[in-house]
Amino acid sequence: MRRTYVAIAALALFLWMPQIAGAAEYGFKWVTSIYADADGIGLKRPEGVACGEKRVVVADTGNRRLVRYGYDGDEVSAERVFPLGKSSPTVLQFNSKGDLYFLDGRDRRIVVLKASGERVGSLNPKSMPSSKEIVPKSFRIDGDDNIYILDIFSQQVIILDPDWQLSRTIPLPKDRGFFSDLAIDRQGKIYVVDSVEAVVHVAVKGAETFTRFTESMKELVNFPARLTIDAQGVLYLVDQNGSGLGLVAPDGASLGRRLGLGWNKSGLYYPSQICISAGGNVFIADRNNNRVQMFTVSAD
């Protein structure tokens, strides 16, 4: 009888430990903040950020431009500025060739620049039903250069191959508040976040519909406007109105909040897009602090 109790206690401890470990792992350490371009012109209301191993590109929304930076450790240096005319860049991504894709909040179109800065034009999906209008609220590019567009007009996620040919669409859940962002994990799962309901839905690779991934997380986040996922499958919800991050474990459980409202380093003030580099560096477009902040996530 006693053996049974010991076994149950051991099992419970075994099941509980990863949760404690999971919660403890996600400590954020501030590395540096990006404030300006090479000429000292300050960022203004930057809403977007995309990052790779050695470079990070910022959608400097208020200045209507993109700014590319190189980084090595905590050293960040501005490399190039891409003026965008009247465009108002919000969400930003680049593909494996370094081509830059940004969502123009003014024209509600995804605009493409070559890595050199040459403007390719708007992303026009091929083989789409001609009558279908698209209003992209956000988009992502996966490691194979497939493009995922969150289309709020037709309430669907549009998946395009690297040549912009329509692969398929997945309808968004009908019971909704407002879908703001999406994220793709390494297994090809698509996550969408409903900012109003504070709920994440998921579509596994090949699925034709989304299923609810979390319950309402209003206790965790006020208004999760942006979303990304790390290599371990942990979701990072950017709480725009709550100026912080909410973390969600791969099983949908809350891992608690990180960072908080502030103007000093590591404080956030109405943050926007977030990205995680392959090396685990986290970049957050700290919109109303007019900067992008870089963090490492410690495993302590």
Partner: peptide, 30 residues
């Protein structure tokens, strides 16, 4: 659907709204 239906009569309001840098996104959904 959506804004397209209203635009027929409320053309000026819609054009004025869409010519700003930041739109209230729910206006543009279905």
């Amino acid at each position: 659907v959506g804004l397209d239906l209203c635009e027929g009569c409320h053309y000026e309001t819609v054009v004025d709204a869409l010519n700003k840098s930041m739109v209230h996104w729910p206006m543009l959904d279905d």
